[in-house]
Design a protein around this nucleic acid. Structure first.
Length: 414
RNA sequence: GGACAGGUGGGUGAGCUGGCUGAAACCACACCCCUGCUAAGGGUGCGUACCUUUACGGGUACCGAGGGUUCGAAUCCCUCCCUGUCCGCCA
């Protein structure tokens, strides 16, 4: 959520920044006006309330002294009606303010490049040369089927399209990867946590998935609960509505969870294989920090995920997302794209974002800075998407005969 | 799911026959004094959010959440949520 007081003060700066993300300036104008209107009504309301409090005290006093109450009673009744009216007005304004404010994305960092979509992202660096094959490398679904690792038809039968089942070494490798990633992150100082796979609406609001992106979420019927689209939601919300001890910061956390996404609007994209599934495993990194350390932690998290790929021998590149391609809550995002020889393309396997105080403001995560409570910065990033790592291993470690080698670092985990 | 008991400030915990309580007391915490270290003692401060003020300060709201009664509610009434204990059921 944007800081409304800051918006009031530096309207032009913020409007310019948000325009880079395609936010209509008129919307911001509206927000600013609503905010000012609200303040006016609030002042009048509070004045009326102060008057009421005073008169109520007098009322008690008069009564004790046996004085005539009729005049006072009339005044108080009139004032009461005024309070009720102002209260309604304030509530309406608040609702409208919330409606607008909650749908405005985060302000991009200054060093985020301009651009509208993926094509404007900026490659930072490549790590590991893609291997050359002396045969035509296959795509992962061919390899998966040939080795019996993935059962697409039965996954669809027991659920629906974009679901699949893993079998044999595929199933075991999935689990091995999860364990390997968690251990890798733990060795880098990230505390392993295990969290609920469903969360309530407040949590999803806190990290920015709601109210704007309800269509992407699976909701449990008859409950105010949703299946999580990413571990970022439960892990970051561990600290919602809390005031943290500054000395304990930063928190570095890592968690394995499955993720559930409706993939609304991506019909027809990546329909073959397991690139885009309604359910997939992910190991996530989350950091909660004081603002002065958030840049450092961002670098640390990018390095952690990138080194993890390197340790698996997977060629990849780091890409700085342009303003138009970033997620709603992010101020800055670096994606890691892994090389898939079968597709002959780099594909996203990790995404690391600094949300600055955007989520913290929504989720009310603060820390004590001397006397003052200040908003923390929150960061999140995939350690790696496990399913896509499995794909990357299949495609990069495939042999001419269609069999697949296992990266050495994973052997102890199988 | 059933029965009871509860939900108050960082913690414990009063208040709950409505106004003098945003909230006692104790603990924790911060600062000061005293004590040559340690232990102990004394004093002061210490909730959150918003509005307002150059500053000192002032105002409003909040005692799980939302409604209601009342001139006035932490205190009375209703609904919901959560926690604890026992029973049932399960992993």
């Amino acid at each position: 959520m944007v800081d409304l007081r800051q918006l009031e003060k530096d309207f032009d700066t913020i409007a310019t920044s948000l325009k880079r993300r395609g936010v209509d300036e008129k919307l911001l104008e509206k927000l600013k006006i609503l905010f000012e209107e609200k303040k006016g009504v609030q002042k009048r309301l509070e004045a009326a309330q102060a008057e009421q409090n005073q008169k109520s005290k007098l009322f008690g006093q008069y009564k004790r002294e046996g004085k005539d109450l009729s005049e006072l009673q009339k005044e108080v009744a009139e004032n009461k009606a005024r309070i009720a009216a102002l209260n309604d007005e304030l509530r309406t304004l608040d609702e409208r303010l919330f409606e607008v404010a909650a749908t405005i994305p985060n302000i991009p960092d200054a060093d985020v490049p301009d651009g509208e979509d993926e094509s404007d992202n900026v490659e930072i660096k490549k790590i590991l040369e893609p291997k050359t094959f002396d045969f035509q490398p296959k795509e992962h679904w061919e390899l998966a089927e040939a080795n019996g690792w993935i059962d697409f038809e039965r996954g669809v039968k027991i659920a629906k399209s974009r679901f699949s089942a893993l079998r044999l070494t595929g199933a075991r490798l999935e689990r091995a990867l999860i364990n390997y990633m968690l251990d890798f992150n733990r060795n880098r100082g990230f505390e392993e946590v295990y969290v609920p796979f469903m969360t309530n609406a407040e949590s999803l609001y806190g990290t920015g998935q709601l109210p704007k992106f309800a269509d992407d979420l699976f909701k449990i019927e008859g409950e105010e609960l949703y299946l999580i689209p990413t571990a970022e939601v439960p892990v970051t919300n561990l600290f919602r509505d809390e005031i943290l001890d500054a000395d304990a910061l930063p928190y570095r956390l890592t968690a394995y969870t499955p993720c559930f996404r409706k993939e609304a609007g991506s019909a027809g994209r990546d329909t073959r294989g397991i690139i885009r599934q309604h359910q997939f495993d992910k190991v996530e990194l989350v950091a909660i920090t004081t603002p002065d350390q958030s840049d450092k932690l961002f670098e640390e998290m990018v390095a952690c995920a990138s080194d993890l790929l390197t340790s698996l021998g997977l060629p990849h590149r780091q890409v700085l997302l342009c303003a138009g391609d970033m997620g709603f809550s992010a101020a800055k995002t670096i994606d890691l794209e892994v090389w898939l020889p079968g597709q002959g393309k780099y594909r996203e396997i990790s995404s690391i974002s600094n949300t600055r105080d955007f989520q913290a403001r929504r989720a009310k995560i603060r820390y004590k800075d001397g006397k003052k409570n200040r908003l923390v910065h929150t960061l999140n990033g995939s350690s790696l998407a496990v399913g896509r790592t499995l794909i990357a291993i299949m495609e990069n470690y495939q042999q001419a005969d269609g069999s697949i080698n296992i990266p050495d670092v994973l052997k102890p985990y199988l």
